[in-house]
Design a protein around this nucleic acid. Structure first.
Lengths: 140, 140
DNA sequence: CTACATTCTCTAGCGACTAGAGGAGCAAGC
DNA sequence: GCTTGCTCCTCTAGTCGCTAGAGAATGTAG
């Protein structure tokens, strides 16, 4: 008997109970066996799958990517080019995001530093928001 | 006659037509005058407001924050502490996001570099996703 | 047996749009 | 006039990845 109810699965995996049910609903996690009282019971393999999903979500992969990655995991003899491509796409996305957030950070810092804590009428924050051309550093 | 139809307003502001209507719907942009044929016509002041909204969105402020910022802009004699607070909160958020994305980037780079382009069964990408403990750098 | 926790299903909501249906208005060319 | 084709109108529903809540049933500890 190493099957656990959903609450325990949630505790062990760090995925919330409704989220586990949601993953089942969208077909990311197979429907587990049920007890007499119609309650889900998860096996070790389910918990592993759940951990895989959680980790992938933490790394920012979207559900469709995870679906593909799980299919790949289920077929270990296939070439892994697809997995590599997905991971690289995610990496490229992260790099791009860091770039634009860094530009944003510079802009926000200028805004906040320029604020003299007086009236709104002279506030640099409001002024810059109203006039994009005052942003010289970031072309967002 | 310097009022323009919604398509032109979209072109000038860089905000898409349905989005402009959406902003009106949620009360972020005042409902403009209509032509005989029931078409929206925007004045310069509307276009300025739209530019303010767009720029704020680009900087990642959420709608509620923008609502507050617009109210502040409409009352220039008030102290600007609120504007400053909102901008600082946004800055803190951006800094935090950059931090976690940078950790993610390191993790993804390790994954991608480790991939030997062989079979899925030996793929480092899949392996790391399945086993969080192989992530040593980021505690995500 | 009684509390209480846990689980069940189902529907609706979040933010910030986006897409599409189905129709009306309008300007230019014939 | 008339047609073509663009813009615009309103409305509803969908996107993503959950999250919240209602209302009922099941399981467990004392």
């Amino acid at each position: 008997m190493r099957s656990v109810p959903i609450g325990e699965a949630a505790r062990q995996s760090g995925v919330k109970v409704p989220t586990i049910r949601y993953y089942e609903h969208i077909g990311l996690l197979p429907a587990p066996n049920r007890s007499k009282g119609n309650r889900r019971h998860y096996e070790t393999s389910d918990l592993r799958r759940l951990a895989f999903i959680r980790h992938s979500r933490e790394l920012g992969f979207d559900i469709e990517a995870i679906r593909t990655l799980l299919t790949l995991q289920d077929n270990p003899s296939q070439p892994c080019a697809t997995a590599d491509t997905i991971a690289q796409a995610r990496l490229a996305d992260v790099v791009q995001r860091i770039r634009s957030l860094t530009a944003l950070k510079a802009e926000l810092e200028l805004m906040v530093e320029g604020c003299r804590h007086g009236k709104v009428g002279e506030c640099r924050v409001i002024e810059v928001l109203a006039d994009h051309s005052q942003c010289e550093h970031a072309r967002h």
